[in-house]
Amino acid sequence: MDIDLIITSLPKLLSASLITLKLLLISLIIGMFLGLFFAICRMSKNIFIKQFAYGYSYIFRGTPLLVQIFIIYFGLAQLEWLKNSFLWIILKDPYWCAIIAFSLNSGAYTSEILRSAFQTIKPGMIEAGKSLGISNKIIFYKIQIPIAIRQSLPAYGNEMILMMKGTSLASTVTLMDITGVAQKIISTTFKPIEVFIIAGSIYLFMTFCINNLIKLLEKKYNF
């Protein structure tokens, strides 16, 4: 074990964790909107909309995230018409390519989580609310939404952790996140074990924080 290396690389890796966190947060937020949209599509009566949402979720959950990033980053850059369009401004940037891949991936998993959460809402509850003379709006916000959140919290916590781990793949498209910086340090020191152990510890700490956040929220929505 090279203690010196551990001490000198820690600050570099910590500052890189800001990029990891940024990637994670933005992807989770966009993923949440995508997930909500597609979860609603899944409940649509229109068979095409339903199938489209199902196909989206199936494709993005059935293929490795690495494949998705590579198709978006290296693959799309091959299309001349795309490079001549305004979309290239976004796709030119590895940062946005990574965010697009992560968001689409997270959106697929989130849509599944939300869909099953919506399904747990039983019509009886709405009936009960109505018979008590509570307005639809209040039923929705005060009864349905909290129950759905409570139902989906554990699964969503898992999704957050999966996504956080997924951001390590940003390093494959030149981004300097924790894994990217770790690989850079290794490329000059040739000591992978030490550096990866520190990088791993930072990820583990993030997992720990996410877990506790979820526990806190579970308490809040427990009734």
Binding site: T179, F196, G200, Y203, L204
Partner: peptide, 19 residues
Amino acid sequence: TTLIRGVPELLVIYLLFFG
């Protein structure tokens, strides 16, 4: 379980490969 599920798969693979 906490360790393995909390660290990116890529790092686990690297660690095992080199170590």
